[in-house]
Amino acid sequence: MNNAHSKAVLELNVNNHPGVMSHVAGLFARRAFNVEGIVCLPVGDGRTSRIWLSVNEDVRLEQMIRQLEKLEDVLSVRRHGPAHAVFERLAEFFC
């Protein structure tokens, strides 16, 4: 997963219904901010989901997080460093 950019991993808890992924992806897309990796699965009883995003460190990232926090269907946002294991463990599916 290493390349020229240093990465950040974002962990989002979101409501689980059609359109939530569009809201999240759209925030990045319309700012021409590429999302390098996405993983999403329902949590618990399925009323909420967890989205993991791998994004490049960028001066705009703090603003992106604040915009994510404003989304009605985003319940929480946590920022992790590049060392977070979620995408590394998935790497074997992308060989």
């Binding site: 059609p18 359109g19 569009s22 759209g26 319309r30 009605e72």
Partner: peptide
């Protein structure tokens, strides 16, 4: 409508 209005609303519902 849902897709078109995502970026221009505070929130939207179908």
């Amino acid at each position: 409508t849902y897709g078109l209005t995502i970026p221009i609303t505070k929130h939207n519902f179908l």
